[in-house]
Design a protein around this nucleic acid. Structure first.
Lengths: 344, 344
DNA sequence: TTGTACGCGTTATCAT
DNA sequence: ATGATAACGCGTACAA
């Protein structure tokens, strides 16, 4: 079918190996021969067969992306397109292709990862999630395949390369901001406790209220999915309490949007009655009414840095694990209000 | 390094070709041998090298995705994650992997496509956009590589397999709905005229007002980017007119959100002062306040059907081009209002 | 039913 | 500086 290295070799009157060297721009080939070979390549419309090259030199120039298991729901969250954009940019700068997992259940995804790795389809992988007891992660570790986690691994994080925000600090700052604004009845609406990001932000929240001598209340901490539906359900729970919170720390913008709309339906206004700080600062945070005060976690950079780390790992085997902290920043908008201090 | 077909053959005391046949579950191998080989594979932890397989049988079991050139902006639109979800689901059902382009400029993307195709990295491609005079499309046609366009190709659409909505009809219906609600001063805010989808919806709009004997006004037709920023700019233009429109057909939910917020800032209320119908019905259409009346174009299905068509094309060479129309449906919400008829 | 031998397109090693 | 040849791991026509 296609034109191969042999065809080029014939036309240029050289050996196939010479053509190969010209492709690699080897310094041991005379400039004259290079010219001849190159014009032969052009004339024939030659393009190297990447598959054959991969087989010969055991490298693919491709990185694998492992999506979270609930792929159907996950794409609804703007986090993923944005992190994908960062990854895409990084991959492109490093001339790497992207290979995506398509599985939906955990088992399917695991099988795909094994395929990618053992099938030598990719040189390394990026995990777009981080959860407790992940078999994919264990597998990659024992195979010693280069990989990077976006988010902090639950265990052995010292020996794993990961890119993450300081979610503890972010959670703490969000909460402190509300405390400084005079709030004391502050609730936390987070995602699943299986996700390390939830744990970190919650711990930060905890630390902040503790530091301010505000008692921790179990009924003020709610866990739902990272979607607006989760936000809705959380609000219903919280508003049924005797002592309603005056402020909410919501672990995701999309959830916060659900919260916003539910509160609106119930005639509770933000920020007059309830203040909200959320996380991620995706587009909708700005577009919401009122616009949401949100912690910008620089999602693009998470993806971009993940690729950088991965390439580094691929190119320098036995490199030590690297931990990258992407800085966050609170973007203040209209969803928070200072209230009267109740004591002292 | 890894364990190969030969290792398995040795352990099972058979020839490598026998192992290969067991993998393919050939009917010409005795059940007894199969068992023996399989247990050998298990014992050694064997996994086929997909790269080698690809080289041998000239197939990759992977499909390539070509993103639009302005990758940075494009991911902000919820259209893409959703179509990606459809593609991902379809690919998974067909046991195909996904390769994504990472280039940003048109030239980069073109080079990548050539790599994918000539490098035999993919068996076929899906174009996630459709624009006038696309060199990628021309290239794929002349190479006779299986490919599917999401959206309608501008030229030669009969000979190209594509998956699209009936955007003409959708544009017409949206406009007719407003006309039936008593509106006559109806503006159209669309994306770039380079995009076929814009052309189709605009033509539908045109047809509808023509049919209703409403004169076409140049100043009522505006083209901006498919983002909320575009929506904002469009509104400013329209509201500076002497005769302000009473209704808007906005070609994208995200733009509509921009429109909504801009109108809000200017103290113009929706739907009391201006009615809006938009397209795509992504999550934010529902979450916007007021919730947007939007034409649901079934984005997931666009992606899903695209994969189906592509696989079909890959598996049956020389198949005729197929055109799939994904049905749309208007979702009525709170952004439209019936107004007093002015004449007759 | 199973084995032998060659080809897929490239790179790498060893000659020259 | 260049050529011949052997891998890379698998599929398959042909032989047995």
């Amino acid at each position: 079918m296609g034109v191969t290295i042999k065809d080029v070799a014939n036309l240029a009157n050289v050996a196939p190996s010479t053509v190969s060297r010209v492709i690699a721009d080897s310094s041991r080939i005379s400039e004259k021969t290079k010219q001849r070979v190159r014009s032969a390549m052009k004339e024939l419309g030659y393009h190297p067969n990447i598959i054959a090259r991969s087989l010969a030199n055991q490298t693919t120039e491709a990185v694998g992306l492992v999506m979270p298991s609930s792929a159907d729901k996950v794409f609804q969250n703007p986090f993923f397109p944005e992190v994908l954009r960062g990854i895409s940019t990084g991959a492109h700068e490093n001339k790497r292709a992207i290979y995506m997992s398509t599985g939906e259940t955990e088992e399917e995804i695991f099988a795909e990862v094994v395929q990618m790795v053992q099938g030598r389809r990719v040189d390394g992988l990026i995990l777009l999630y981080s959860k407790v007891d992940d078999q994919v992660l264990s597998y990659l570790q024992e195979q010693s395949v280069p990989f990077v986690v976006i988010g902090k691994p639950f265990k052995h994080s010292e020996s794993i390369t990961f890119v993450d925000n300081d979610n503890f600090k972010a959670g703490k700052e969000a909460t402190e901001y509300l405390i400084e604004s005079g709030h004391e009845r502050i609730a936390f609406i987070g995602g699943s406790l299986e996700l390390v990001v939830t744990i970190d932000r919650l711990t930060g929240y905890d630390k902040a209220i503790q530091k301010a001598n505000i008692p921790y209340r179990d009924e003020y901490v709610i866990h739902e999915e990272f979607l607006q539906k989760g936000g809705k359900e959380a609000v219903c729970e919280l508003l049924s309490l005797k002592e309603r919170p005056t402020a909410l720390v919501v672990a995701d913008d999309l959830m916060a949007l659900g919260v916003l709309n539910t509160l609106d339906e119930m005639g509770i206004s933000v920020p007059e009655d309830i203040s909200i700080v959320s996380f991620n600062n995706v587009l909708i945070a700005e577009m919401a009414r009122p616009a949401l005060t949100s912690i910008d976690i620089n999602i693009f950079e998470l993806g971009y840095q993940a690729v950088r780390c991965l390439i580094k790992q691929i190119e320098t085997p036995y490199a030590v694990a690297e931990q990258v902290r992407v800085p966050h920043k609170m973007i203040k908008r209209q969803s928070c209000k200072t209230i009267q201090m109740t004591k002292r």
